[in-house]
Computed example of a mutant assay.
Amino acid sequence: MKRTILTLVIACCACSIATAQKHDTITTASGLKYYLTKKGSGRMIKPGEVAVWHYTLTLADGSKIDDSRKNNSPLGFAVPTDGLIKGTVEALMLMHVGDRGVFIVPPSLGYGRRGFDAGGSLPAIPPNATLYFDMELVDIKKAALLDTLEKALFKQPVSDTSTPRTDAVIALYKSYKQKKFADMFTSDNDLNTIGYELLQRFPNEAIKIFLLNVEEYPKVGNVYDSLGEGYMNISDFDKAILNYEKSLQIDPGNTNAVEKIKQMKAKRAKSVLQM
């Protein structure tokens, strides 16, 4: 299951709105509202550096969308960036390392009139939704591993006939690992994202990346979910089911895996009958 980067952050529902009245809520020129619940002693991020942060995201009705603390999986992005919603970028640029706060993001700084489609285990965000973030800036890094891997994946400039340099990406990953990823943000999402960039056109290459991710993060359910999808794309139903089941063992709440296992068993049974 591709982990969708929601570019948002922390949980505060209706009760958080009431709590906000007890704090000195600041409203910025853009319309972002926030207050800090903890003040850190670190520095602020400089443009181009990688912000590492934890988040929980809820909607106004209290519905929880995502929580990075659940699996201890913070996000890391160089800021500013177009890869995140405007409200998240602004929030990160306002924080010191160690700061934690509630950020209320209006639709104009979030997903606006389009909303956000459900993906995997993540529910949808309706159109014109106000987003409630509880964000904590935990670190600042010089670079993000994902950015480096993506640049190495295809020879520049990329065209429709470009072929992936998967083995080179794997070698590059291992070389950074030997250096202990010095001053670089890493997570299970790095290889997962590379795998999904390959999956539709180069499924066997994607599987190579997903296999490495399983080796690197054997206790993360999502990496087995992604490997299961890789095998599903080449109709290897047995291996697909095996990996989805492994994902479900680690994360029993993964409804995506439950549905995929049903689909794969049905396809496997159909293929047997056709033999």
Rank of each mutant, 00 (worst) to 15 (best):
I5G: 11
D99M: 02
S271K: 14
P107K: 04
P127R: 00
R43C: 03
L75K: 13
L122V: 13
I207A: 09
L75N: 13
M93S: 13
N222L: 14
A124Q: 12
V102Y: 06
V102S: 11
A168N: 12
D167E: 15
N243T: 08
G62W: 04
H54R: 04
G230E: 02
Y34N: 05
Q249T: 14
V158K: 15
G228D: 06
K39H: 14
D61N: 15
E150M: 13
P127T: 04
Q21E: 15
P80A: 05
K267A: 15
S226F: 12
T161K: 15
I26L: 05
R201H: 12
M275N: 14
K270A: 15
P47A: 13
A168R: 06
G230L: 01
L36N: 08
D61S: 09
F77S: 10
L84H: 02
N213R: 03
I140A: 01
S108K: 10
E229M: 14
P106F: 06
S159H: 11
T166S: 10
D183A: 02
D190C: 14
C13T: 13
P164Q: 07
T56A: 13
L59D: 08
P164E: 10
P203I: 08
G228L: 06
G83D: 15
R201S: 15
I5S: 11
L273S: 11
L137D: 02
A129V: 03
G110I: 01
D167G: 01
L248D: 00
S162V: 06
D66V: 12
G230N: 05
F103Y: 14
K2M: 12
E136Q: 13
A266T: 08
N192M: 15
Q178P: 00
T28P: 06
F103V: 03
Q200F: 08
V52K: 07
P74R: 10
N204S: 13
F116I: 06
G110C: 08
L248F: 05
I10F: 12
F181G: 04
A269N: 09
V169N: 01
L227A: 03
Y196E: 00
L211K: 15
K265Y: 01
Y217E: 08
A20W: 10
E229H: 08
V52G: 12
G48C: 09
V105K: 06
E197S: 15
Y173R: 02
V138H: 00
V223W: 03
P218V: 12
K22V: 09
V220R: 14
I65H: 01
I250P: 03
P123V: 07
L146G: 03
I194R: 00
L198K: 02
C13K: 12
K174H: 14
Y224D: 00
T7Q: 14
K46L: 11
S162C: 04
K179I: 02
E150F: 07
D61H: 10
A152R: 13
D251M: 11
S108W: 03
K151V: 11
C15W: 07
T27V: 13
P127D: 02
L131V: 04
K64N: 07
T166D: 12
K2S: 09
K46G: 03
E197Y: 15
